[in-house]
């Protein structure tokens, strides 16, 4: 009689599976493998946790940075507005400042005008310079005249000395011989005025000495006074 074998297969397998006989099952190997994988799994779990924490931290950091960025943007907008307002204020102040600066420049200009000589002052200065030059010229002319006078005085002194010598030598004996003419003496006086004048001139012009000499001849008999011509300050 035919029998359904598939039930037998099932039963045989179930019985075989429940047997304890060895079919090459290495318990230690499998158990070590399970423990190793479990450890790995634990490590993996910890790695997972760590990575989750890192992700959370990074996410929170990112969120914080986004929020900060948003705040900064708002602040930036506000600051831009402020800058705009300040810019307008600065423009206004600049205009005011320009007015002030212009005022200061005007004041400086006035000061400069005061400092710099005007036309009248220039003219006066020129006139004074001209006058000064004229005076210098006159002074030089005077110096030249004094020198001339001094030279003439020298010449006259020489002449007078010569005349006096000649008079004492020749004329005086003749007069003595002719009578009472002993009282007739040729005297040469230097007036005090001339002396003082000469001394002053001598101080200024050492080499250009000039003298005013009063030359007087006394004649007791005839009381005659001969006066020199009033030329170049010389009188006899």
């Amino acid at each position: 009689m035919s029998e359904l074998v598939e039930r037998d297969f099932k039963k045989a397998i179930e019985n075989w599976e429940n047997k304890k006989s060895d079919i090459g099952f290495n318990k230690d190997l499998v158990w070590n493998s399970i423990n190793g994988k479990a450890d790995k799994k634990t490590i993996f779990t910890w790695t997972k946790i760590a990575s989750i924490i890192i992700i959370i931290l990074l996410s929170s950091g990112l969120a914080y940075s986004i929020i900060s960025n948003h705040k900064l943007k708002k602040e930036k907008i506000a600051l831009t507005g402020n800058i705009h307002t300040l810019g307008e204020e600065i423009r206004q102040l600049k205009n005011q400042g320009q007015i002030k600066i212009e005022t200061i420049i005007k004041t400086d200009t006035i000061i400069k005008v005061i400092k710099t000589p005007g036309e009248t002052e220039n003219n006066t200065l020129n006139q004074l310079k001209n006058q000064n030059e004229d005076l210098n010229n006159e002074l030089n002319e005077l110096k030249r005249l004094i020198q001339e006078q001094y030279n003439i005085n020298q010449t006259l002194n020489d002449s007078i000395e010569f005349l006096a010598g000649n008079f004492n030598k020749n004329t005086k004996p003749q007069i003595a011989n002719s009578g009472n003419i002993s009282d007739q003496i040729l005297k040469v006086y230097e007036s005090e005025d001339i002396k003082s004048t000469n001394s002053k001139v001598n101080q200024t012009n050492t080499n250009n000495q000039s003298k005013k000499i009063k030359f007087t001849i006394f004649n007791k008999q005839e009381n005659t006074v001969y006066k020199a011509p009033t030329q170049q300050g010389i009188r006899f």
Binding site: E3, V5, D8, I13, N15
Partner: peptide, 18 residues
């Protein structure tokens, strides 16, 4: 069709067959 057999097969044979 399911497997049939006239013989009583041993469990060991059945397992080995599978």
């Amino acid at each position: 069709a399911p497997i049939t057999s006239d013989e009583k097969l041993l469990e060991e044979d059945l397992v080995n067959m599978i």
